[in-house]
Every structure is written in C-alpha cells, then in structure tokens.
Amino acid sequence: MGRYLSIFLCCARACLVRDMTFRANFLLECLTSVGWMSMNLAFYLLVFTFTSEIGRNTGWTREPFFAFVATGLIINAIVQAFFMPSAEELTEMVRTGGLDGVLVQPLDAQFLLSMHRFDFSSLANGFVGIGLLVWALLRMEHAPPPIAWLLYPLTILCGVAILYSLIVMLAAATILMGRNQSLYDFWFYLTNFSRYPAEIYAGPWGSPLRALCTFVIPILLVVNVPARVIAQPFAGQTWGWVAAAIVAAGGALVLSRVIFQAALAKYRSASS
C-alpha cells in the first residue's frame, strides 16, 4: 500500500511539474474552467429570479440549491483532476499498443491506468465550489449539525467512488472495443443527470428514471446524498440515503474491478 501511495505521489508531482512548466497555459485552463462554471451559476441565478424553490416543497430553495451545486463542483473537480485524464489516454493506449507497456509493469494495471495522469487545473472549480458552499451555508436558515459535518466528507468520497467506478467500467469497454469515443461522451451526458436534486425527477416518466438512476446506475446518489446531508435538515431518512451511498459505492467499486479484470483478460496487443 505504501509503495502505491509513493507511486501515486510521484505521478502527481511529475504532473504538477509539467503543469507549472507551462504556467500561462495552466492559468488559462483554470480560467476557462471557472468561466464555464460561472456561466452555469449565472443560469441558476436567473432561474431563481423566477422561482424561490426548485420543485414545490422540496426544500431546495436558493441557498441549499447552491450548496448542492457546490457539492457537485467539488466532486467533479476531484474526478476530473485525478481520474479522467488517465481514462482519456486509455483509448489511444489500446489502439496503439501502449497498454502492453503498462501490463508488464510490476503494479496493478487498474491502479496505473486510472491514476497516472492528473490535471490540476480542474481543481480550480473545486476551490470555487468550497467558496460557494461556505457562502451558501452562512446564509441558510439552519446550520448543519456536527454529524452532518462528519458525514459530508464520507459521502463525498462515496460520490467520487461511484464516478470512478463508472470511468473504470467505460475504460474496460475501451479495452474490449478498441475505440469508444461515444462512450466517453455518454459519461458526460449520464453525469448530467446528477447535476440536479433527485426530487425534480417526478411524475410518470420522472419516477422510473429516478429509480433507474438510483438503484441501477446510482448516478443520482453521487451529489444528492452529500448535498442532502449538508444542506437539508438532518432527519432519520438521511441515514437511509447515507447507507445507500455507502452500499452503492462499495458495490460499484467491486463491480468495476470485476469488469475491468475481465476486459484485460480479453485484451489482445495492438503493437508489433
């Protein structure tokens, strides 16, 4: 475990050095990332000029909703910074045979393939998310209880684990298919469902969709559970949500591991 940690830190240091070598580019990437996020925040501010709540009696008024958005920013920043860049490289590695070099290393292939490249500029949104969270919590009618502060980081980790598992499963599909550009687009479109409170998925079409995105592909648990813990009154059912997130994260990690190993077993080298 210590060896893996030191390799992880070594890769992180190397990527940071590379990012700092092109400081202007790094700064520009941070700015564009924050620009995109600011645009979305502007849209939500506009929405709240027409309504005081997202969904009737859902509790997602302006400040809790912005705490929800902030939580999503933090989780996505972690995933985009630490896992997505490696996954994006995998397509080319499979196609060109670069994956062979990874498989002969005396390390776990999943670890090396999913955590060897980092994009620290993506963390900019995470820092803005923390600022937004503080802003929202200071203006909320009720302060989160101490237990919420304990569960919040735990449930954020669960959200990261679910997204990480999804990336690993898509990476496995890359190995099987050779190329899967559309599947990575699919990842972005799928995570789009996690951007809003689960309560908006209601009615004859919304309820089945909500069930699908909670129990089959638990994408709705990623942001909803930590945001509910910190931004909604802590009640008995909150424990149920936390338990669901922990179970979903554990299950997703195990399933993704099994699928990834099965994909590797079917891998045929593309190199000469």
Binding site: F50, T51, G55, T58, D185, L190, N192, F193, Y196, E199
Partner: peptide, 29 residues
C-alpha cells in the same frame, strides 16, 4: 459512432425538461 452520438445529444434536454417542470411546479406563475 455518428448514430450513437446523435441519440446521446438528446439526454441533456431530458434534465432541462424536468428542471423547468420543477420550476413551474414551485411557482404560481
């Protein structure tokens, strides 16, 4: 790849439909 990409472009609309339905559900306007 083209067909798959085309179909996926409709997914963000789905969330927008639910978002605005929720907004209208919460307001008397």
């Amino acid at each position: 790849d083209f067909i798959l990409g085309t179909l996926m472009r409709f997914l963000p609309i789905v969330t927008q439909v639910f978002l605005w339905t929720a907004v209208f559900g919460a307001t008397s306007r």
